[in-house]
Write a protein that binds this DNA or RNA. Sequence first.
DNA 1: TCGATATGTGACTAGTGGTCAGACGTTTTG
DNA 2: CAAAACGTCTGACCACTAGTCACATATCGA
Lengths: 210, 210
Amino acid sequence: MGLLERREKEKDSRRMLILKSARTLFFAKGFKNVTVDKIARFSELGKGSIYLYFNSKEEIYAQILLHDIDKFHRQARSLLNKKKTATELLFEFAYLYVDFFLNDPELFRILMAFMLHTDQMNLSEEQYKKVIADMRRSIDIINNIFQSGIDSHEFPSGIDIKYKQFALWGMLNGIIALHIFSGSESKRKEKIRSTVKSTLQVYINGLKQG
Amino acid sequence: MGLLERREKEKDSRRMLILKSARTLFFAKGFKNVTVDKIARFSELGKGSIYLYFNSKEEIYAQILLHDIDKFHRQARSLLNKKKTATELLFEFAYLYVDFFLNDPELFRILMAFMLHTDQMNLSEEQYKKVIADMRRSIDIINNIFQSGIDSHEFPSGIDIKYKQFALWGMLNGIIALHIFSGSESKRKEKIRSTVKSTLQVYINGLKQG
DNA sequence: TCGATATGTGACTAGTGGTCAGACGTTTTG
DNA sequence: CAAAACGTCTGACCACTAGTCACATATCGA
């Protein structure tokens, strides 16, 4: 059935077109200041058509997050191939993460909106679970790094990896939020790197102590 | 002029009444699901009256945050009077902070909404600065604790307090967000305490190492 | 060619934040 | 005491927007 297949592909490319338009608009003006009608016009579609591909404005927002988490995950995975110490890998992961999610603050806003407002965002249970699963998958990379550090006796074997990975992830999110809050746009990237470096260094020193 | 004074007081008590109503509703249903009209009805006022005391729905939201930050600050200040080591004080501050802002997740949502959406929240410059200043004031308590730790040689003198206090605050926020995201309502409080304990312990160990 | 199916549309509905002309009550003034 | 001035309150009203749906158009199989 080549036809159905082509249809699927076309449908998918429409979806991607809408997502791309929405992304541009959201990142330029923020969620509240973008109307579904604007997304439609920008995609050269009627408003009704948007709702053929998505069930709500919020769903579009969430889908952007899903798409980007996937992109991040691929980049983060590739870190593991590098021949580096676990400490170095943790730093690289941390830098990658903060750069990725701070690169455009709106992306981080979506992540936070999702984390904090899950119950109020009209998403299907399915979609909700998918975001969680995808996010977990990326956080698990921290887990892998920790484990390799233990295997190589870089970290003491007693540490409770499961907790530590989430704590570290939380730390990174907190630092990003902090810099969006207080940092001026221009110097943000350098400043956050130095905060991450200093914080992570202290944390890892503490970890190594056991 | 006893009359003007009484008027001022009455006006202020109306403001507080509205804030209290709004708080109840926001905390029960979340920002998006509460209408200004509902706040008005709950306060036994007409909708127009709300706008005599506040300029926008968002301003009400922000004022709740301001009110609670103040409450937190008073509690946190009183910690400093205790005769404890800096390490102990850091733990107490951290517990107080996460308990306070997680006690009702909506409060943390307001904080985050404010941190992340400042540009999109129609607040006056004045109000915005007030929130920053008030928040800073509370974070400075961490600074005081660090300083006392250095003075008592509990921490090495070389550490860069300014950075560390913000990093620590960011960490706490990240951990709260993490638990709102993934924790089930019931066990949240115990779980977050143990995460905070473990994370902070590691961090402080690292700090002490210099 | 014709019917069926998939895709697209924008006028319309329902609901919301915010405004404002006028009502009402209280104080001041002549 | 009358009435003007002031402060407070109000809900009908406006502007805007997420989401719907009856209808239009395009594509395809028979």
